[in-house]
Every structure is written in structure tokens, then in C-alpha cells.
């Protein structure tokens, strides 16, 4: 027994086994189950084990599926663009313009204050603000900017993306800020000594060195937006759909196999997206 434990292979296996067990039970098995159920057949009140491609056939045969997947990518892309611009700017300001560490920490914590409440609350609080008789419209009307309420502020794609950007920008700020803090300041001095101006330093030094942070932030934002359903439901007034809503509607109507099939397709789509993203940057090298 003692000899066995001294064997390096055995200790190695024993050391990874807790993590492997956790992943097996909480990641691999649920996904395997979803894959299996996606081939089952559902009637209104029962689910019958079977192996048939009906759920996938219906999914790929419906034009709505393509619209909905397009919508999901549209939300993900626009949200990503906005969170990146805002997130990068905030992180840049914190990392390079704030000199003292105390202030950096204090301002960083300030960014996290909205996260002290639940994201549903943060999302729903936009509704009275953006509504037809909401604060935004009544303020603009009292200023004379508009004559009658702007309708597209609420229950529109604008509202959905606004809520996404509000909810997820911090996920972009944190990793970018983190990588920026690790940039050796002497590199920037060297660039300046070599005659580079501010824009050149930003483009040729800071952005390349911040890429891993940008990529981690991107993965956060893209996966969060692609998997969301509740923000889309509330902010669009149930009028727009992304893949998450398709799944949640199916579940609500007891169509578990159909929901599973959609979930599998979504999972594959997200994995491919991330696979492509990781082609651009080797984040492991930087961590």
C-alpha cells in the first residue's frame, strides 16, 4: 500500500480525482443528460424516451430559429462593442491616470457598487426611467428637446442592449484593468523616449499587452449575453426573442426535449465562438 502511494502516477491521479469527480458530476453528466433528452419525444403531458431527430429537424426547419440565432449574435456583438469601449476607457483611466494605489482601489470599488443589488433589480429599475411617461421622456419634454414621448426607449432592442451594457460592463473593466496594472511602466517610458506619441503608445504598446484581458472580458460578456433570457424578456416587453427565451418558452410549455435540442445547439454555437476567439490570443500564456 505504501509502495503504491509512493508511485508518482498514483498520487498524480489521486490529486486530480476530486476536481475530476466534481466536474464529472456537475458538468459532464448534466450535459450528457441534456444531449440524451434532446432525442426524446414529447407529447403534451409526457416525455417518451426515444431516439429520433424530430426535435432537431423542427429546430433547423423553422425560419424563426435562424432569426432568433441572428438576434442573439446581434445582441452579443453590439453589447460587446459598447462594453469594450466603455470598459477599456474606464480601465485605462484607472490604471494610467490615477497615480496613487489607494485611489485606484477606491475608484475600482466604486465601480462595483451597483453589484451590491441583484441584477434583476438593476434591470427592472430602467423600466420606470425609460417608459412613455418615465423620467427620461418627461425630462426631455420639459427641456423642449422633444414634443411628444419617444416610444423606442422602452420595450425595444435599444432597451435590451442598454440593460446588457449596464449589467455587464464591469466584466470587461475587471480583466482589462488587471492586465493593464501588470504592464511594466518602463515599457511606456521607453516608447516615449523612442519618440512615440500618446496614440502610438496606446496602439503599439498598451493594446497589444492588454489583449489577454480584453479576450477574457470578451468571453465573459459574450457568454453572458448569449445565455441570457430574462433581460430580453423584460426589456423588450416579451416582444423580442433570443435563444435563451426560446428555451425558456419551451420549458414553460413542457417541451423539454425541444428545449434540450435548442440548448445543445446553443452550447455548440457558444463553444465555436469561443474557440474562434481563442485563436486570436493565447490567454494561458498571459495568466
Amino acid at each position: 500500500m505504501k509502495k503504491l502511494l509512493e508511485n508518482r502516477n498514483v498520487t498524480g491521479w489521486l490529486m486530480v480525482s476530486p476536481l475530476a469527480a466534481v466536474l464529472l458530476v456537475f458538468l459532464v453528466m448534466p450535459i450528457a443528460l441534456i444531449v440524451i433528452v434532446s432525442f426524446w419525444r414529447a407529447t403534451e403531458f409526457s416525455i417518451i424516451p426515444a431516439f429520433e431527430w424530430d426535435n432537431y429537424a423542427f429546430l433547423f426547419g423553422s425560419p424563426v430559429t435562424y432569426t432568433v440565432f441572428f438576434n442573439t449574435f446581434k445582441y452579443a456583438f453590439i453589447t460587446w462593442a459598447f462594453t469594450l469601449i466603455i470598459g477599456f476607457t474606464v480601465a485605462y483611466y484607472l490604471a494610467f491616470h490615477i497615480r496613487s494605489l489607494t485611489w485606484q482601489v477606491a475608484l475600482f470599488l466604486l465601480c462595483t457598487i451597483p453589484f451590491w443589488t441583484s441584477n434583476i433589480i438593476r434591470m427592472i429599475s430602467w423600466i420606470p426611467f425609460l417608459g412613455r411617461n418615465g423620467i427620461a421622456n418627461s425630462t426631455m419634454m420639459s427641456w423642449g428637446v422633444i414634443d411628444e414621448p419617444v416610444e423606442w426607449l422602452l420595450f425595444s432592442d435599444f432597451a435590451v442592449i442598454l440593460a446588457f451594457v449596464h449589467l455587464y460592463t464591469l466584466f470587461m473593466v475587471v480583466p482589462i484593468f488587471n492586465t493593464m496594472m501588470r504592464i511594466d511602466k518602463s515599457l511606456i517610458e521607453a516608447a516615449r523616449d523612442a519618440g512615440a506619441n500618446g496614440a502610438q503608445i496606446l496602439w503599439n504598446v498598451i493594446i497589444p499587452l492588454t489583449k489577454p484581458g480584453i479576450m477574457i472580458g470578451t468571453i465573459f460578456v459574450v457568454t453572458l449575453v448569449m445565455g441570457d433570457f430574462i433581460t430580453v424578456r423584460f426589456m423588450s416587453g416579451s416582444q423580442s426573442a433570443n435563444v435563451g427565451r426560446l428555451i425558456s418558452n419551451d420549458i414553460a410549455l413542457l417541451q423539454y426535449p425541444s428545449a434540450s435540442a435548442t440548448a445543445i445547439v446553443l452550447l455548440a454555437t457558444v463553444l465555436i465562438t469561443i474557440g474562434i476567439l481563442l485563436r486570436f490570443v493565447d490567454i494561458r500564456k498571459e495568466l
Binding site: 423542427f58 424563426v64 432569426t67 427565451r245 426560446l246 418558452n249
Partner: peptide, 13 residues
């Protein structure tokens, strides 16, 4: 079941 699927499409349309 057909109605439910069509309904889902209406919501997503």
C-alpha cells in the same frame, strides 16, 4: 402541440 410551437414562433417573430 402545434399551436404551442406556432405560438412560440409568434412571440419570437
Amino acid at each position: 402541440q402545434y399551436m404551442v410551437r406556432k405560438w412560440n414562433e409568434f412571440i419570437a417573430a
